[in-house]
Every structure is written in structure tokens, then in C-alpha cells.
């Protein structure tokens, strides 16, 4: 019976584990190896360079700048997503008429890709021309057109990138908050009402928000990790046939141009960069596990 269980276990888990070995462990192992070699345009390098690639990356202003870009992006996108998706969830959850309609409208952008959203934002809303939507609205107030995606002073492109991501992801996090709100026991509100708490700010602060703690932690971490991996909208909004501007390169965009850019494939530095990024994100995940326990589906 024991051997038959072992056989059955490998029948179920074996194919998955084999794939994971090839497409998860092997890349990580290989990149560790490559990161210690001079690997220009080759994946089987021979010239061992020790930790030079790492030293290069950590002293490379552009790499550090990409971490700064991510940090700035996260500082905008994480709190805004949190507050706005919570607000939408509270509003949708408190109405009785047309609730499904509003929920669907806010959730609909989930069906769009970052590429499609980039197209709309770059060519129609913020195209920088007089007939773009944003500039048309500004012109009603007598304001001159703004070159949204190419202006660095002030850096209007942040407005473009942040609103784009908000539109795409608010509905997703709103659904998470609604699910969290519906798990709050109703009797808490009744008890608070009997105790004289006014519905509104008081119950929000003393019942709703504390009861949403687990969901809130999830939302913050998910938005943070997603911001860390930002690539699609940066590449499509700011990139052009002439390449990518020197500013606003988040880590994955930077890595993309280092490892696979037109200047030739540099897998040594690209791998060292990937290892550093992977270590940083693993650290965040571990800290999260430490701080909040290994949470399972609630």
C-alpha cells in the first residue's frame, strides 16, 4: 500500500515538479552561474569574472536609478490604489440599487491589457497634441497644451503612468475589499449602533478598518509587488521606434535593455541584475511571512 501511494504521488505531482525544475529552478541556477561570468552574446561563457558583474551593477548609476524609479512609482501607486479601491468598495457595498452595474463597470478594465491601456493613454488621452482629450479639457479653461509623455520638467509622465495603472487595477482590488467587507459580522455594526456610535466615520474607523486588516495587508503587498514588476505600460507609453528615454526606467525595463537590448545581449550583467532583484523581492516576501504569518485562504 505504501509503495502504491508513493507511485500515485509521483503520478500526480511528478510532471508538475519536473516542469518546475526546468522552468523555475534551472533558470535561477543558471543565472547564478552566468552572473559570475563575462557572458556577452553567449549562454555558455568561459571567462570567469568573480563578483565583477555584481559590483558593476551596484555601482551602475542607471541600475540604482531604476530602484529609485520603482520607489517613486510605488509611493504614488500603492496608497492611491489602497484608498480609491477601498472607497469604491465601500460605496458599492452600501447601495442597494444598481450595485451589480457599478461593480461591473469598475471591474471591466480588468479585461484590458496594459498594452491596450497604453495605446489609449498615449495616443488619445495624453497624446500631447492640441486635440488630445486631456489637452482639450485644459483648453476649456484656457490652459495651453502639455506634452504629457515627453515632458520631464515637470515630469508629467508620472500622471500618465499612475492614472493608467489605477484605471486597470482599481476594480481588482475593489473586489478584494468587497469580499473582505462581506465577511465582517453584521452584529458588530448593530452592537456599535446600540452603543451610540454614529454610522459613518466612527464605525469605519473602529469596526470596518480593523476588521479589514487582513485584506488591507494583502492589497498593500500585492500592489507593491506588482509595482516592482512594472514593465508593460512603461515600455509602451515611453518607448518608441527610437528607443527608450533615459529617465523613468523601472527595474524590469532596465534589465530588458541591459540583457536583450539592441546593444547586444549581455547575460552576465543581466543575470546579476536578475539575482539582485530576485533577492530583494524574496526578502520582502519573507518579511511579510514573518510579520503576518503564512496566511492561507480565509
Amino acid at each position: 500500500m505504501k509503495t502504491s501511494n508513493a507511485k500515485a504521488f509521483w503520478l500526480f505531482v511528478g510532471p508538475f515538479l519536473a516542469g518546475l525544475a526546468i522552468f523555475a529552478y534551472l533558470p535561477i541556477g543558471w543565472s547564478l552561474l552566468l552572473s559570475f561570468f563575462d557572458a556577452h552574446n553567449t549562454v555558455t561563457p568561459t571567462e570567469f569574472v568573480g563578483i565583477d558583474n555584481y559590483l558593476d551593477m551596484l555601482s551602475d548609476g542607471a541600475f540604482l536609478q531604476s530602484m529609485g524609479t520603482f520607489t517613486l512609482f510605488a509611493l504614488f501607486i500603492v496608497p492611491l490604489t489602497f484608498v480609491l479601491s477601498l472607497a469604491l468598495a465601500l460605496l458599492v457595498n452600501q447601495i442597494s440599487f444598481a450595485r451589480t452595474f457599478f461593480r461591473s463597470v469598475f471591474f471591466l478594465p480588468t479585461a484590458c491589457s496594459y498594452v491596450v491601456a497604453s495605446l489609449i493613454w498615449k495616443l488619445s488621452i495624453f497624446n500631447g497634441l492640441r486635440y488630445g482629450l486631456a489637452n482639450t479639457v485644459l483648453s476649456w479653461f484656457g490652459i495651453e497644451p502639455i506634452a504629457w509623455t515627453v515632458s520631464t520638467d515637470p515630469p508629467w509622465y508620472w500622471l500618465v503612468l499612475v492614472t493608467l495603472r489605477l484605471w486597470l487595477q482599481l476594480g481588482f482590488y475593489m473586489i478584494l475589499f468587497i469580499a473582505g467587507l462581506q465577511r465582517i459580522p453584521q452584529h458588530l455594526y448593530e452592537a456599535a449602533w446600540i452603543d451610540g456610535a454614529k454610522p459613518g466615520w466612527q464605525t469605519l474607523r473602529h469596526i470596518t478598518l480593523p476588521q479589514l486588516r487582513a485584506t488591507s495587508v494583502s492589497v498593500v503587498l500585492l500592489t507593491l509587488i506588482a509595482a516592482y514588476q512594472a514593465f508593460d505600460e512603461f515600455y509602451n507609453v515611453l518607448g518608441s521606434a527610437d528607443g527608450y528615454p533615459p529617465f523613468a526606467r523601472p527595474p524590469l525595463v532596465y534589465l530588458y535593455y541591459t540583457a536583450l537590448g539592441s546593444g547586444g545581449q549581455d547575460f552576465g550583467h543581466g543575470s546579476a541584475g536578475a539575482v539582485i532583484l530576485a533577492l530583494l523581492i524574496a526578502l520582502v516576501t519573507l518579511l511579510q511571512g514573518r510579520l503576518f504569518g503564512f496566511r492561507r485562504g480565509e
Partner: peptide, 28 residues
């Protein structure tokens, strides 16, 4: 089974997008 489970959970710490360069190397 426990060891296998942890080997799988360990991969959750690193999103696939972050390792796209090494994955590209394997696939190519």
C-alpha cells in the same frame, strides 16, 4: 510530500517576471 510542498512554495517568493532573463536563456 512535505519537502515537495516546500520546494513548490519556495518558488512563490520570486515572481516569474523578475527572472525573465534567465528563463529566456533556458528557452532559447
Amino acid at each position: 510530500a512535505g519537502k515537495v510542498f516546500y520546494a513548490i512554495v519556495a518558488t512563490l517568493m520570486i515572481p516569474a517576471a523578475v527572472t525573465f532573463v534567465p528563463s529566456f536563456v533556458v528557452v532559447s
